[in-house]
Every structure is written in C-alpha cells, then in structure tokens.
Computed example of a mutant assay.
Amino acid sequence: MEPLGIVFTEIGPDFLRGTMPVDRRTKQPYGLLHGGASVLLAETLGSVAANLCTAPGEICVGVEINANHLVAVREGTVTGTARPLHVGRRTQVWEVRIEDELGRLACVSRLTLAAVPHRTPASAEG
C-alpha cells in the first residue's frame, strides 16, 4: 500500500474509502492509470473492509477479483469506495467503485473473500 501512496480516508457503517495518486508509480507506459494499480486499490479496500467484519479468530482472504476499467485516468487522485454485497459466515462479496477527481467512474470491481481460521506463523508450520 505505502509504496503506491494508498491512504485510507474514511470509514462508515457500510463502507471503507481510500485514495491513490495517479503518478509515475501507478501509470502504465502510455501515461494512463494502470489497470493493475486499480485492482490493487480495490483489493486493498475490500480486504481490509472484510476483515473488519470477521469473527474473532478468523481472517478474510481473497478468492476472486474482477474489474471493469471504464474511464482512462491520466493524472490526479482516484478514490475507491468498498461496500458489502454479502457478508456471510464463510464468504463475503464486496464491490469497489473507483472514481477520478471529476467523479467519473473509472473502475468497478467485485471481490470475493473466504473467512478462514487465523493462524500465527508458528502454528502454520506445525
């Protein structure tokens, strides 16, 4: 997160929001926001939000993510907002909408996560 400048900016009862700059770190060779950077922002927001909703002793891990890139972004900052579509005992599905500074929808992503028992590194070895 930190190397790409992702910052959490707001949390609400049903959302988590964060920003990411569109700069040399997040652009592809043609000067546009890299689709992979958008997916990274989406998975970061969705995963953190999901983990805020897990039962004690569990963590949520990504199972599948998809993204549709809708508007090219060349500069500025994008803002992603993660909202739950389904929060179950074993699975969660989150939608992340990423907008540019003009409020245009640049990317929409859906992330599916599984709730699994949390293991410390020592217990994972044994």
Rank of each mutant, 00 (worst) to 15 (best):
V71A: 08
T79S: 12
P13V: 10
L70P: 01
H118E: 14
V116F: 09
A55S: 14
L111H: 12
Q28C: 09
L40K: 07
S38D: 03
V96W: 00
V96M: 09
E64L: 08
M20A: 03
E43P: 03
G5P: 02
D23N: 13
A122I: 08
R97Y: 05
L33A: 05
R83A: 10
A37E: 02
G80P: 06
P21S: 12
E99H: 14
V73T: 06
L32A: 12
T9P: 02
T54D: 00
G62A: 08
A115H: 02
V71L: 07
R104V: 03
T81C: 13
G80A: 07
A49F: 15
T54I: 15
R24N: 07
I11N: 05
C53N: 14
V87S: 06
D14G: 06
R97H: 11
S123I: 12
G12P: 03
E58M: 11
L32D: 14
V48K: 06
V39R: 07
V61E: 00
E99V: 15
G12T: 04
N68V: 11
S109H: 07
L111R: 02
G18S: 06
M20I: 01
D14V: 06
A42S: 12
V73S: 04
V93K: 02
R24Y: 08
L32V: 14
E43T: 02
L52P: 03
G12A: 08
C107T: 15
A37T: 01
T79W: 00
V93E: 01
Y30M: 13
A72H: 10
T120E: 14
I98A: 01
G18T: 00
T79F: 00
D100E: 10
